[in-house]
C-alpha cells in the first residue's frame, strides 16, 4: 500500500511538460485514428433545432458571425449547420458581423456551403459585412439598418440589391441566430436586438460563455443554445450532416478523461500527504 502511495506522490511532482505531452497525445491520437462515439443530444440543442424548424416558410433570417479564428473550431460547425438547415428550408440569409474576423469566418462558411448548395449571392444570401461599434451596431440595426449599412461587403449599394427590399430594421427578420465567442455577442443581441424587437433569437456560443448565457435560455429570451463543440456535434447529428464537430468528439472525450484522471491523481496525492502530515 505504501508503495502505491509513494508512486502517487512521485507522480504529483512530475515536470509539467510531461503533462503537456500527455494532453497533446490524448488529443492527437484520436484525430489521427478516428473513433466513432455515440452522440447524445441535449434539450438545449434540441430547442435550437426546433426553433429553426418552426420558422415560417420562405423567411428572412439574420445570422451574425461574432467570432474569430481563435474560436472557429467551436462555433464554425454551428454556423455551418444552421446555414444548412436554413437553406434546406429555402430561407434567405442575411449576414452581419460584430467582430472584424467574423467577416472572414462568414466568407469561409459561404465557400464551404457553396459546394453543397450552389448559392447565388443576392438571391440566397447577402453578406452585409463588419461594422465596428459592438452593441451600438445591434441597437442601430434594431432602429434603422440602412443607416448602419449603406453598402454590403463588396461595396454594392443596398438599394441595388433586390433581396434587401423591405429590410429596414431587425423587425423585418423572422429569426436571428448569432454565433458568439464573447463580447460583442449573445448578450448584446439579447439586450439590444431580441428583447426590444421580440424577434426570436437563438445562439451558439463557446463553451466558456455558455454558462453565462444559460439564464437567458431558461427565461426564454433565447430559444436554446449550442454549447461549444459538443453542442455543435449534437446539432450536426440533428441535421443529419456529420462534420468536424462530430469528428472532434473522440479527441474531446479522451482529453476530458485524461484531465479528470489528473484531477483525481492530484487529489489522491494531496490526501496522502495530508494523512502523513497528520500522523507526524
Amino acid at each position: 500500500m505504501r508503495f502505491f502511495e509513494d508512486m502517487i506522490l512521485k507522480l504529483g511532482s512530475v515536470d509539467r511538460r510531461y503533462i503537456f505531452l500527455l494532453i497533446g497525445l490524448a488529443v492527437l491520437i484520436p484525430l489521427l485514428r478516428p473513433i466513432d462515439l455515440p452522440i447524445r443530444t441535449t434539450p438545449t440543442t434540441e430547442k435550437v433545432y426546433k426553433a429553426i424548424a418552426e420558422i415560417p416558410a420562405n423567411s428572412k433570417v439574420l445570422m451574425s458571425f461574432d467570432y474569430g479564428p481563435s474560436t472557429k473550431p467551436e462555433i464554425h460547425p454551428m454556423t455551418l449547420g444552421v446555414m444548412r438547415q436554413l437553406l434546406r428550408e429555402d430561407h434567405q440569409i442575411y449576414i452581419t458581423c460584430l467582430w472584424p474576423d467574423g467577416l472572414y469566418m462568414a466568407l469561409d462558411a459561404l465557400e464551404e456551403i457553396n459546394e453543397e448548395f450552389e448559392l447565388v449571392e443576392y438571391e440566397d444570401y447577402v453578406l452585409l459585412g463588419f461594422r465596428p461599434g459592438n452593441e451600438a451596431i445591434v441597437k442601430g440595426l434594431a432602429s434603422d439598418l440602412r443607416k448602419v449599412y449603406t453598402v454590403d461587403y463588396r461595396q454594392t449599394m443596398l438599394e441595388d440589391i433586390p433581396m434587401m427590399d423591405g429590410i429596414n430594421n431587425l423587425k423585418d427578420f423572422q429569426f436571428i441566430f448569432t454565433g458568439s465567442a464573447g463580447y460583442p455577442g449573445t448578450f448584446e443581441w439579447v439586450q439590444y436586438g431580441g428583447d426590444p424587437t421580440g424577434v426570436p433569437l437563438s445562439s451558439g456560443t463557446t463553451s466558456i460563455q455558455v454558462n453565462e448565457v444559460m439564464p437567458y435560455v431558461q427565461s426564454g429570451q433565447i430559444k436554446g443554445v449550442l454549447a461549444g463543440m459538443p453542442g455543435a456535434a449534437e446539432y450536426e447529428k440533428l441535421i443529419g450532416t456529420p462534420g468536424i464537430a462530430i469528428q472532434g468528439m473522440a479527441a474531446q472525450s479522451f482529453a476530458h478523461l485524461v484531465i479528470v484522471l489528473f484531477i483525481v491523481l492530484g487529489n489522491l496525492a494531496y490526501f496522502i500527504t495530508e494523512r502523513r502530515e497528520r500522523k507526524y
Binding site: 488529443v27 492527437l28 481563435s70 474560436t71 467551436e74 463553451s207 461549444g228 472532434g248 474531446q252 482529453a255
Partner: peptide
Amino acid sequence: FAVMGRISLLIGRF
C-alpha cells in the same frame, strides 16, 4: 466548460 472550450481550440489547431 472552460476546460471543454480550451480542448476544442486545441483540436482545431491539431
